[in-house]
Computed example of a mutant assay.
Amino acid sequence: MFRLSNLIKTTLEDTKSRTLNGSIMIWNFTNRCNLSCHHCYSKADANEKDTLTYEEIEQTISRLKKGGVNFVIFSGGEPLLRKDIFDIAQCMKDNGIMTYLSTNGLYINEKNVDQIIDTFNYIGISIDGIEEIHDQFRGQKGSYKKSIEAIKLVQAHGGNAGIRFTITKETQDSFYAMFDLCEELNVDKLYISHLVYSGRGEENLEIDISKEQRREYVEFIIDKAFEYYKDNSKIDLVTGNMEMDSILLLNRFKKQYPQKAEILEKKLKAWGGNSAGNRLGNMDWAGNVKPDPFFPFTVGNYLETPFDEIWTSNENEILNKLRQSPREIRGKCSNCKYIDICNGGSRSRAYAMTGDLWQEDPSCYLTDDEIRR
């Protein structure tokens, strides 16, 4: 996760960057979902049944802190389909863990909106394009209107709601419109995710955009982040699954704010790029623990081994290699002067395309001339 707006603000104002103390876990509590999104990494659908019991979740929550986890993103499937979701969140709070909600918004209504706001520190609602594109991509007509209504409802009740958007060939025609929508709704955050090849995303490699298009979009995102900063806009821009975005921001600073470039570079190195298996992890409804939601291999099962023993283990080869800083990555990364900033990008994309976890990220849009040591 690349916190673009926060880095611009703190670098230009010489203040401390927002940092996360401890690991973030994306926990898929269910694989049930009322939608059928084309890019879904868990292949969720409405016919799935909940297999993870509250008792199993409760026992595992008590081990999260021991494993260094301070933040949990509630995900799925659709997490609001679980009837015990608020009990789970309260258990998290009782154990000193912050909770974020990632939802399609269709189950947010007048009856539960206040409880959702009181329960979760942040609410992210997925919008993947203007109405027609969103409905087609998410597999349900009318879902766009319901999701927009959910955002407005959260705001009307004093809550924090942001938009989550994934760039693909199917959604890219709405890319620029997403900024207009955020400005119109005055949301708190726009999280723009790059596609990772996993789940239905792996089956739909053809829906990914080109490197040239990706770079063009990222340049626009950076432009917008500077614009929002100058206008004192509250819209926070964040990108996900493409740590190379940080290099474009650094290059922009070298041109526009050369006196601040060294400060930013230090912040980026402290951030450390892709953090899968270190500051980021994933837990699913079957007990599997993975370095990120898209990762092709598990590193343990929390229903069989206590979570903290899995996450703090020094004996897991995959975790050990992921936690090297910088990682030892082959291909263009082996001669890249920015490896200690981006950390090689997505291992999941590398494996999906090459069968090698430690090969270069195939979506990297930086040129050989730009990265040569």
Rank of each mutant, 00 (worst) to 15 (best):
E309Q: 10
N21H: 09
V299A: 06
R373F: 04
F253K: 00
Y144V: 00
D14L: 08
E183P: 03
T166G: 01
G201L: 05
H194I: 05
R279I: 13
G129T: 00
S102A: 09
W27L: 14
K93E: 07
A89I: 08
T239F: 02
S147K: 07
A270N: 08
K230E: 07
G159T: 11
R214S: 12
G287L: 14
F71G: 00
Q256D: 10
Q259G: 03
D45H: 14
N112Q: 06
N104L: 01
S193G: 10
K93A: 09
D135A: 02
V218L: 11
W358C: 03
K152G: 06
E183A: 02
C182R: 02
I329H: 02
N251T: 11
Y191A: 08
N6E: 15
S36D: 13
A150H: 01
G273E: 03
A156C: 05
C333M: 14
L195R: 05
D308Q: 14
M353Q: 14
I108Q: 01
N232K: 13
S346A: 13
N320Q: 09
Y54G: 08
N121S: 15
K234E: 12
P258R: 09
V218I: 05
N47R: 08
D208W: 03
C182V: 13
E13V: 11
L20S: 15
K146R: 12
I108S: 01
I341M: 09
C33H: 06
S75N: 12
T60A: 13
D308V: 06
I235N: 07
I329A: 03
E149N: 13
D245E: 10
G281V: 11
N28G: 08
N104K: 10
D188V: 11
I130N: 08
E110F: 00
